Simulated scan of single mutants.
Amino acid sequence: MDPKHFPDPTSSDPDRFDEAMPPYVYMPFGGEPRVCARSQLARMNILMLLHNVVTCYNWSLIHPDEPVTSDSLPYPIHGMPIRISPKRRSID
């Protein structure tokens, strides 16, 4: 809320964060050592979800021979649709 670092601190102006902040300026959900603690929890939840989706499901392309075209970047003609099905677990 310091007007020295943030002109008009009570207004909503996301563009004020486009420029680099001076060292040691307090930013509530900022980066470096003061990054929001929940960002690590969110990252861990995403990693766990990805692990379960990759290890518990089979992935296959619906159009395995789908051609790739390019405008400025290469991309599949049909958008590369996939079929996801649960893996069968064997009972040991």
Rank of each mutant, 00 (worst) to 15 (best):
M1L: 09
D2W: 04
P3S: 02
P3V: 03
D8V: 05
T10P: 00
S11W: 04
S12H: 13
P14Y: 00
P14D: 00
P14V: 00
R16G: 00
P23L: 02
V25I: 04
V25N: 01
P28V: 04
F29V: 06
G30N: 05
G30T: 03
G31L: 14
G31W: 15
E32D: 15
E32S: 15
P33G: 02
R34A: 08
R34C: 04
R34G: 05
V35E: 06
C36E: 06
R38L: 12
R38Y: 09
S39M: 15
Q40G: 07
L41K: 09
L41H: 15
R43V: 12
M44D: 11
N45W: 07
I46W: 06
I46H: 05
L50Q: 10
N52Q: 11
T55E: 08
T55Q: 11
C56G: 12
Y57M: 15
Y57L: 15
Y57V: 12
N58G: 03
N58F: 06
W59R: 03
S60I: 04
S60T: 10
H63S: 11
H63C: 07
P64G: 01
P64N: 04
P67T: 05
P67C: 05
V68Q: 06
S70R: 15
D71S: 11
D71M: 08
L73G: 04
P76F: 01
P76A: 03
P76S: 02
H78A: 10
G79Y: 02
P81G: 01
I82L: 14
P86I: 07
K87Q: 08
K87T: 06
R89A: 07
S90L: 13
S90W: 07
I91M: 09
I91W: 11
I91S: 08
D92V: 07
D92W: 08
